Simulated assay, not measured.
Amino acid sequence: MKIYTYCHPEAIQYTGDVPILDDSGKVIAFSRRVYDNLLKKTFDEIFDFRYFLKYDVMSLNGEKLFTVKKISRRGKLWFEGMEVAIGKKYIISYENWRIGIPTLYITDKKIKIQLEKEAEDWSRFLLDGEEIARWKAEYREGEGEFHITLQINDISPIQQPYFFIAICQATLFVGA
C-alpha cells in the first residue's frame, strides 16, 4: 500500500501550492486550486467559492499532471477529470443526488469506480466491490488546517496519486 499526505488550509478558496508527500516525507507533487481568470474568481466569491471549482496537480517542475473541474449545466452537476499527459478524460458524477447522501462514480467508459463519501471517516474508492484506495481529511483546530491522507492499495489499476488527490480535493474537500 502506498501512502501520501498533505496539509490544506481550512479556507477552501486557498489558491497556493499544497505540497504532496510520499510515505518517506519527500515532496512528489503539488495541488492547487486554480481560476481561469479574475472574473471567475470574483464571481466565485459571491457563491461561497463553490461554483467555479478547478484543481490541478502538478509535478515538481510545474508540469500539469491531472486537472479536475466542476461542470454545472441546465440543472445538472458533474466533474470532468483529465490525465493531461495522455489526454485521458474521466467523468465524475453523482447518482441519487436528490435523495440523501449521493454516490459518486468515476468512469473513463472502460472502468467504473464508486466513491463512497464519508464526512468524518475514510472515503473509499471501490472497483468491483473491492477497495482500491481511500482518502481522509482530519481537521486540526489549533493549526487551522486539514491533515489529509491518501492510501492506494496495490490492487488498484490506478497507482498515480495525482488522480485520487485532484478528484478528492474537488469532490470531497469542496464538494457541490
Results as ranks from 00 to 15, higher is better:
Met1Thr: 12
Met1Tyr: 08
Lys2Phe: 07
Lys2Gly: 04
Ile3Ser: 11
Tyr4Ser: 02
Tyr6Gly: 02
Tyr6Pro: 01
Tyr6Val: 04
Tyr6Met: 14
Cys7Gln: 15
Cys7Ala: 14
Pro9Gln: 06
Ile12Gln: 11
Gln13Ala: 14
Thr15Val: 13
Gly16Val: 06
Asp17Thr: 08
Asp17His: 09
Val18Leu: 03
Pro19Asn: 02
Pro19Leu: 11
Ile20Ser: 05
Leu21Ser: 05
Asp22Pro: 07
Asp22Lys: 00
Asp22Ile: 07
Asp22Cys: 04
Asp23Ala: 12
Asp23Phe: 03
Ser24Ile: 05
Gly25Phe: 03
Gly25Val: 04
Val27Glu: 11
Val27Asp: 05
Phe30Asn: 01
Phe30Arg: 00
Val34Gly: 00
Tyr35Glu: 12
Asp36Tyr: 09
Asn37Glu: 06
Thr42Arg: 12
Thr42Lys: 15
Asp44Leu: 01
Ile46Asp: 05
Phe47Arg: 07
Phe49Val: 09
Arg50Cys: 10
Tyr51Glu: 08
Tyr51Phe: 12
Phe52Trp: 11
Phe52Tyr: 15
Leu53Phe: 03
Leu53Asn: 01
Lys54Ala: 13
Asp56Ile: 05
Val57Asn: 00
Val57Glu: 02
Val57Gly: 00
Ser59Thr: 01
Glu63Val: 14
Glu63Thr: 10
Glu63His: 09
Lys64Phe: 03
Lys64Thr: 14
Lys64Met: 10
Phe66Leu: 06
Thr67Met: 06
Lys69Ser: 10
Ile71Val: 15
Arg73Ser: 11
Arg73Met: 09
Arg74Trp: 08
Arg74Asp: 08
Lys76Ala: 09
Leu77Asn: 11
Leu77Pro: 02
Trp78Tyr: 15
Phe79His: 03
Glu80Cys: 05
Glu83Asn: 12
Ala85Arg: 14
Ala85Cys: 05
Ile86Asn: 06
Ile86Asp: 07
Gly87Tyr: 06
Gly87Val: 02
Lys88Gln: 13
Lys88Gly: 06
Lys89Gly: 00
Ile91Gln: 14
Ile91Val: 12
Ile91Gly: 04
Glu95Asn: 14
Asn96Arg: 15
Arg98His: 09
Gly100Arg: 09
Gly100Met: 08
Pro102Ser: 09
Pro102Gly: 15
Thr103Val: 08
Tyr105Val: 08
Thr107Gly: 04
Asp108Lys: 02
Lys109Tyr: 14
Ile113Leu: 03
Leu115His: 00
Glu118Ser: 11
Ala119Leu: 08
Ala119Pro: 05
Glu120Cys: 06
Asp121Cys: 07
Asp121Glu: 13
Ser123Ile: 08
Arg124Lys: 15
Arg124Tyr: 09
Phe125Gly: 00
Leu126Ser: 01
Leu126Glu: 11
Asp128Trp: 06
Gly129Phe: 00
Glu130Met: 08
Glu131Ser: 04
Glu131Trp: 03
Ala133Ser: 04
Ala133Thr: 02
Arg134Leu: 03
Lys136Asn: 02
Ala137Gly: 14
Arg140Phe: 12
Glu141Ile: 07
Gly144Cys: 02
Gly144Asp: 08
Phe146Arg: 03
Phe146Val: 01
His147Ser: 09
Leu150Arg: 02
Asp154Glu: 15
Pro157Ser: 04
Ile158Arg: 01
Ile158Met: 13
Gln159Ser: 15
Gln159Cys: 10
Pro161Leu: 04
Pro161Val: 04
Tyr162Glu: 15
Phe163Met: 05
Phe164Leu: 08
Phe164Ala: 00
Ile167Leu: 10
Gln169Ala: 04
Ala170Glu: 04
Ala170His: 01
Thr171His: 01
Leu172Val: 13
Phe173Met: 14
Val174Phe: 10
Gly175Lys: 02
Ala176His: 07
Ala176Gly: 10
